[in-house]
Amino acid sequence: MIQMHAFYIFLIAAGLLIAAFLYVALSTRNAREINMQSAYGLRKLLFFVVLAVLVLGIGMTLGKTPYPKANELPGKVVFVVGKQFSFALSDTPITNDQDYEARTYGIPVQVPAGSLTEFRVMSFDVNHSFAVYSPDDHLLAQTQAMPGYVNRLRVRFDQPGRYYVLCLELCGMGHHRMRGVFDVN
């Protein structure tokens, strides 16, 4: 899971930093003059190491964005509207409040497992965040729901089951109870 990988990287890097600070703090017990040239040399080395790590990080991750790619086509489209305080999902466009009400309480949209699904997400009022949680409650994918824009989120669902949608952008007093639902089968 990507969250755990990121966490391990964080722990390792933070651990190295803490170790360096601890080492330096303890070194003050034996005060002595330091060779500035050695320090500058070490800084130069650090510069190249950090630059290499950052460039490697950029190289490995910059191509893996969640934005729709031209070389892939979804198999299904789901229309989503966020509004204070619920998400409505539908197989057909939700164009007005009546559609929104009907789809908020309607039977969950069915999404096929294994095929790429495109969520076309927008909002009727304020910013929301359409965040898809897997049946085992991990944040799988998200995009912002905004008035005036349609964000297209493409996700492939391998695991069948009921998926819940939570709102991850503060949208008012009902922010924490705002949700949507769909089924993958």
Binding site: I2, A6, L62, T65, P66, L139, L140, Q142, L168
Partner: peptide, 9 residues
Amino acid sequence: VEVNFHFHN
């Protein structure tokens, strides 16, 4: 970006 997709908010 790839990580933010899972950590944002």
